[in-house]
């Protein structure tokens, strides 16, 4: 469904990504793991279209979308929950969610979308009852966990074909992170295609069927969640070769 081939990206003269190839199929949840600075966020931005790639191609549903801007890709069905959540702090919770429906409005037309947007809003409120409770408060007054739920809900309002999540558990207390991952598992079970980037592997591997391990901007290992969990490469990625050999 979403695929990158031989992707390369740079920030000025620094290479951030090199020769990355990965794919996610319809209804699949994949995890992208790796230590800080491995290129995970860069990869997500390349997938979402908010970063221009230097080499390689991005394919969505078979079509080349490499040069397509983020706003067009979002309307086509690739929606990123950015690192740090990107909640609009001055807007109410409900208006944050309604903004997320922009792709639906673009697809169906403003008037025809009305019923679909109302249905999506109801679905998000059922999945995250706390958002219904706080729908009139500003996004900025929510706790970190609630903001993460809002970011997820806002992305769902687009009825995305692929949802990209950049470190959804970043900065959350373990118990809150667990809750976020329970909702993600519900979405996965409903058939939502997910790409989850995390620095800490355990939760993401519990969610995903397949995983990729990144280090220094390259794919160090890939495979089913089980094989990656027990692989030597996973330890190498985080600890470096010598220390991993000692362990």
């Amino acid at each position: 469904m979403l695929e990158v081939r031989d992707l390369g990206a740079r920030y000025g003269r620094i290479r951030a990504l090199e020769n990355i190839s990965l794919h996610v199929e319809k209804g699949e949840a994949i995890a992208v793991l790796g230590p800080n600075g491995a290129g995970k966020t860069t990869l997500m931005r390349a997938l979402a279209g908010s970063l221009r790639v230097a080499e390689g191609r991005v394919l969505f549903e078979g079509a080349d979308v490499t040069g397509q801007a983020a706003e067009r890709r979002a309307r086509a069905g690739v929606v990123l929950c950015p690192e740090g959540r990107g909640v609009f702090t001055t807007l109410s919770v409900e208006r944050n969610l309604l903004l997320g429906a922009a792709p639906q409005r673009a697809r169906l037309g403003r008037h025809a979308a009305r019923a679909a947007v109302a249905a999506a809003l109801e679905r998000v409120y059922e999945l995250f009852p706390i958002l219904r409770e706080r729908r009139h408060t500003s996004g900025g007054s929510l706790s970190g966990g609630q903001q993460q739920m809002l970011a997820l809900g806002r992305a769902l309002m687009a009825e995305p074909k692929v949802m990209l999540l950049d470190e959804p558990s970043l900065g959350l207390a373990p118990i809150v992170a667990e809750e976020v991952y329970r909702r993600l598992a519900t979405l996965r079970d409903e058939g939502q295609t997910l790409v989850v980037v995390e620095e800490s592997p355990s939760r993401a591997l519990g969610l995903a069927t397949r995983a990729y391990v990144l280090r220094h901007g390259r794919v160090l290992a890939e495979g089913t969640a089980e094989t990656v969990r027990t692989s030597a490469e996973l330890r190498t990625a985080y600890l470096g070769e010598r220390r991993a050999a000692v362990l």
């Binding site: 706003e71 929606v79 950015p82 001055t90 807007l91 309604l98 903004l99 922009a102 992305a155």
Partner: peptide, 24 residues
């Protein structure tokens, strides 16, 4: 209005607004 919502969102964080499909 929806237009107003998109104006406010773009004003606060244009990058995220674009990620949500807003034609900035």
């Amino acid at each position: 209005t929806t237009l107003g919502l998109e104006l406010l969102a773009t004003a606060e964080n244009r990058g995220v607004a674009q990620l949500m499909g807003v034609r900035a």
